[in-house]
Design a protein around this nucleic acid. Structure first.
Lengths: 260, 260
DNA sequence: ACCAATGGTTCAAATAATGAACCGACAAAA
DNA sequence: TTTTGTCGGTTCATTATTTGAACCATTGGT
């Protein structure tokens, strides 16, 4: 891996659960030498991508992101366009809605909305980089994005996050065939125990599938009626976001999402 | 400069006026060889920091920023905290308000608000990386940030953006002394012709001056009364943002901003 | 048909990055 | 109080990566 890649990969270790990371922790997480981490972080810091904070001089993300994200959204308003639809979906279903997109070769959460309906809700704060094989969003993308994505995921070692996580490539392929047939992905306790989630693929202006929209609920709350409601609202919201992104749904998905 | 720095510097060429840039243009802008640019951009693309778009395969900022900016704001909500204050300032003064922060060694615009009061307004879309010596925000930072910033700026070749841009280091030092005495920076036609702007320094949670808040108006509209109004509202808004950022104003600034 | 510019590729030579070993500071344990 | 372990940080001989002149196919303009 190139030097630039090593530096950028350090940024992926930040999360809501871990907004600040010390030098030695970076070395442990990345497997790189502490001197190497120090040099990479110093260079990121010179450009405002990270900054040091507090007496322990831990690193956190810097202000450079703010300008670049604003520029990105000014030109390709994915997040901004999707946020009202996320809120409506959460309101309509009473559950958590979230949006993720392919970032490089990873699946990154870029927006979510909680419903006020319940005290118990599925929160998204513990991780913002999701596994493909163990989330409904990931499965939706594997099913509908360019085949290279699916092949790359299945070629890797697949981690079992719960006892229910499917890690056998052949069985995952069968599940993806089912996802394509239904037009929607669904999984239970694959990534977090007792969480049932549904997801649809989202298509951008080049009609490539580059994102997914999901609704997640505690398993115990998902009755047949709620599942039907979620599927209906998810299809509707997915069509809205694809349109807002300048894409078009493949005709077979229009049909499948309407015939619910 | 290290390899990581070269790659990150490519990202600084994006602006609202230039949201997409081709490979050969990157080579011209950066002075790097086209093959070098290609390799750096390919590595940025692998991590979602840029993506290629359209038939011409130009590069634009990628979705990685969205996640990182959200993480940054979740942990250090500078932009989000400041946005309502920016809107109120624009409304109160009837002119454009904008917020910039030090990013690495540059001054980056991260927020602005327009007033609806006039058809003619100062827009911020042509550049989001501002010069220090030729903007009121930059002068505020040079006056109140760590002295190393000021020394670094004055050690560089200072560009004359208009015939009125001050580029003589000795005269700039005098202007900075005046800015410190007043507690507020002011300049006319230094960066854009016929634009009069005022700025105050902003202090973060470590009580370092890392940002500036400015109001800009067409020169012809700036009467003595409007200037007084802008100074008053700017001081008030500057104190608000510093407090929201967890910082404290130096006591001498509290005094100067009150005695207007 | 010709020319100029684009994005993209190659690989010998040049340059930058690496990481084991070390440092001082600090806090916890003995 | 002393000892131990961990932190962030630094050095420089060795190793790995980057570089860029020269080339390619494609496209659009004249």
């Amino acid at each position: 891996m190139g030097t630039v890649g090593k530096a950028l990969e350090l940024l992926d270790y930040f999360s809501r659960a871990r907004p600040q990371i010390g030098l030695s922790d970076f070395a442990r997480l990345s497997g790189l030498n502490k001197a190497t981490c120090h040099r990479l972080l110093t260079e990121l810091q010179e450009f405002g991508f990270v900054e040091q904070a507090g007496l322990a001089r831990e690193y956190r993300l810097g202000p450079a992101m703010l300008r670049l994200a604003a520029l990105r959204e000014a030109h390709v308003p994915m997040q901004e366009a999707a946020q009202p639809v996320l809120r409506r979906l959460a309101l309509a279903t009473g559950e958590t809605a979230h949006l993720s997109v392919i970032v490089g070769e990873k699946l990154a959460l870029i927006g979510f909305a909680y419903a006020a309906a319940h005290g118990t809700k599925v929160t998204m704060e513990d991780t913002e980089i999701l596994p493909f094989h163990a989330t409904s969003s990931g499965l939706a993308l594997m099913a509908f994005a360019a085949p290279a994505l699916c092949e790359r995921v299945l070629a890797q070692r697949l981690e079992a996050y719960t006892p229910q996580t499917e890690t056998d490539p052949a069985r995952l392929r069968a599940k993806l065939d089912q996802t394509r047939a239904i037009g929607m992905a669904e999984c239970t306790s694959a990534f977090e125990a007792d969480v049932h989630s549904f997801a649809v693929p989202l298509f951008d202006a080049t009609n490539n599938c580059t994102g997914a929209l999901a609704v997640a609920a505690p398993d115990a709350r998902v009755t047949t009626a709620l599942a039907a409601l979620i599927r209906t609202e998810l299809g509707r919201a997915g069509a809205d976001i694809t349109a807002l992104w300048g894409g078009s749904l493949p005709p077979e998905l229009v049909t499948r999402w309407q015939n619910r």
